[in-house]
Design a protein around this nucleic acid. Structure first.
Length: 421
RNA sequence: GCGGAAUUGGUGAAGUGGUUAACACGCCGGAUUGUGGCUCCGGUAUGCGUGGGUUCGAUCCCCACAUUUCGCCCCA
C-alpha cells in the first residue's frame, strides 16, 4: 500500500467540514479588516528564504525542503509566508500602487522538514497577513487584533496574547552583547542547549525549559531596558492602541521569534488548552521594517503575522467548540422500481438547478436502508417516489422532522420546498 | 537531528507459537410481500503496519524499515 508522506495529512470527513468552516471564518475576518487576498507560489528560489528568513535560523539551516529542479535551479518549498509575499510586493512594484499601505492576506501550505508530532506537521497550513508600507503603531495593534478577533469569533477561550519589542538593529545588538556578558561566567553550569544557544542566539536562553526557573535567568537584563527612547515610545503607543481596543495582553520580554527579520513589535498568541501539548502557539508575528530592503526593494516598513490552521483546528477540537456547520441536505429522493428511478434522476437535477441540495439512492438499498441513508445525510425532506403518484403527476414529500407526508403536484414542488425550507 | 511508546477488520478493541482470531459499534439483508429509525435473527471476501529471519508451522519470537504518538530542539 502506498501511504502518505511522513508529517503530511489527509483531511477528510467531519474534519474537512471544520476545515472549510475555519477557512471561511479566516477569509471573512480578513475581509472585514479590508485585506486583499494574495496567492504566491509554494516553490520559490532558495535564496529568497536564505536572505529573507535568515541564514542562521533553524528554519533555514535544518528544516527547509531544498532541491534542484530539472533545470538545475536551487528551489525551496516555502517554510513560511512572509518572504514570498514580500518578494511579490517588490517584483510587482506594489510600492507604486495607489492604495497604501498594501494590506495583504494569504492562506496556504508551508513545508518544514521536522520531526512531526501533534500540532506539528511537515506540510502544514498557515494563514496570515502583511501590511507593507506603513510604520504606524496603530497598524501593529490592528494586526495583533486580527487573530484575537478571529479566535473570539470562533468561541475560543483561554488564549493569551504576549507582546514584546525587539527595538531596532542597534538595540538588538546591544542587548545581545549584554546577555553574553551577563551569562559569561555561569554558562558552563547551565544546560547543554543553553550552552549552544549562548553562541547562536543568547535570547533563546531566556525561555529555556530546563534552566528557565533559575534566578540567573529571572534576573537577566531585559530587552526593554535597552530600547532607544523612540523604540520605547513606539512600543508604548502600540500598547495604548491595544488598550483602546480592549485587547488583553501581557508584555513578555522573553518572546523572541525564530525568524531573523523581526524588529520592534513582536507578538504571539498562545492557547492555554489541555491536550495542545508543546505546540500551543496558535500564531505569531511582528514588525519587519528591514526585510523589504534586504530583499532588494525600497526601504519599506512592514508588519504581519502567521497562524497555524492545523493548530487552530486542534484548539477548536480540544476546547469542544461546536462550530456552526451547515449539516444536512434539503431533500433525499427514494424509490424502488426502475421507472421511479428514471423519474428520480431528472427530479434530482431539477432540484439542484433550483438551488436545493439534494441527493438520491444509488446503492439499490431497500426502503428501510434508504431511510437510514436519508438520516445519515440529515435530509430535511424525503421525496418518496411511487409509480402511481407519478402517473398522476404528483410526488409524495415527507417532512423528516414532523413525519408529515403530503402529495404535491409536480408543478408545485419547487414552490412547496421554497416555502417550507 | 536526539530519546521514549505504539501499530490487530470500516471503527473501538480482546487474544494465542499450531485446524473457523473473541466481543462491541457500524454496515447489508430478513422478520415488516414499498414507509424506516426500537427489538430479534442472519451476513460482513484479498484482516494481524511493511520487508526479511528463526521454526515443521509465526498475528504472537528476532532484525530492519515505515507510520503514528509523547518529550527535546524549534516553531504555526
Amino acid at each position: 500500500m502506498i501511504t502518505k508522506q511522513k508529517g503530511m495529512i489527509d483531511i477528510t470527513g467531519e474534519t474537512s467540514k471544520k476545515w472549510i468552516y475555519l477557512n471561511d471564518a479566516i477569509r471573512s475576518v480578513f475581509e472585514k479588516y479590508n485585506y486583499e487576498f494574495i496567492r504566491t507560489p509554494i516553490l520559490e528560489a532558495s535564496e529568497l528564504f536564505h536572505r529573507g528568513v535568515g541564514e542562521t535560523t533553524d528554519i533555514v539551516t535544518k528544516e527547509t525542503y531544498d532541491f534542484k529542479d530539472r533545470g538545475d535551479r536551487e528551489v525551496t518549498l516555502r517554510p513560511e509566508g512572509t518572504a514570498g509575499v514580500v518578494r511579490s510586493y517588490i517584483e510587482n512594484k506594489m510600492y507604486g500602487d495607489a492604495i497604501q499601505p498594501k494590506k495583504l492576506y494569504y492562506t496556504g501550505t508551508m513545508y518544514r522538514y521536522e520531526r512531526p508530532q501533534s500540532g506539528r506537521l511537515r506540510e502544514f497550513t498557515q494563514y496570515g497577513c502583511e501590511v507593507i508600507g506603513c510604520d504606524d503603531p496603530a497598524i501593529d495593534a490592528e494586526v495583533i487584533s486580527i487573530p484575537v478577533s478571529l479566535f473570539k469569533l470562533l468561541g475560543l477561550k483561554n488564549v493569551k496574547v504576549g507582546i514584546n519589542s525587539l527595538g531596532d538593529a542597534k538595540t538588538r545588538n546591544d542587548y545581545h552583547n549584554a546577555l553574553k556578558e551577563y551569562f559569561k561566567n555561569d554558562i558552563k553550569n547551565m544546560c547543554e542547549d543553553c550552552q549552544k544557544r549562548y553562541d547562536k542566539n543568547p535570547l533563546r536562553i531566556l525561555d529555556c525549559k530546563v534552566d528557565g526557573e533559575k534566578d540567573i535567568i529571572k534576573n537577566a537584563p531585559k530587552i526593554t531596558d535597552y530600547l532607544s527612547e523612540e523604540a520605547k515610545e513606539r512600543f508604548e503607543t502600540v500598547q495604548k492602541y491595544l488598550d483602546l481596543m480592549g485587547i488583553e495582553y501581557v508584555v513578555d520580554t522573553n518572546i523572541v521569534r525564530g525568524l531573523d527579520y523581526y524588529d520592534h513589535t513582536v507578538f504571539e498568541v498562545m492557547a492555554d488548552i489541555p491536550g495542545m501539548g508543546a505546540q500551543n502557539v496558535l500564531c505569531g508575528g511582528g514588525r519587519y521594517n528591514k526585510l523589504v530592503s534586504t530583499l532588494g526593494g525600497p526601504e519599506t516598513p512592514a508588519m504581519g503575522f502567521g497562524g497555524g490552521l492545523d493548530r487552530l483546528l486542534l484548539a477548536i477540537e480540544s476546547s469542544d467548540i461546536k462550530l456552526d456547520i451547515n449539516n444536512g441536505i434539503d431533500a433525499y429522493i427514494m424509490y424502488v422500481s426502475e421507472d421511479e428511478k428514471e423519474y428520480a434522476v431528472s427530479l434530482n437535477l431539477a432540484l439542484r438547478m433550483n438551488g436545493f441540495t439534494s441527493d438520491m439512492e444509488y446503492m439499490s438499498r431497500n426502503l428501510k436502508g434508504q431511510f437510514k441513508q436519508a438520516d445519515r445525510f440529515n435530509a430535511k425532506f424525503l421525496i418518496i417516489l411511487n409509480s402511481e403518484d407519478i402517473a398522476q403527476g404528483k410526488v409524495k414529500i415527507k417532512d423528516n422532522a414532523t413525519k408529515e407526508e403530503q402529495l404535491v403536484s409536480e408543478a408545485d414542488l419547487i414552490d412547496f420546498l421554497d416555502m417550507n425550507m
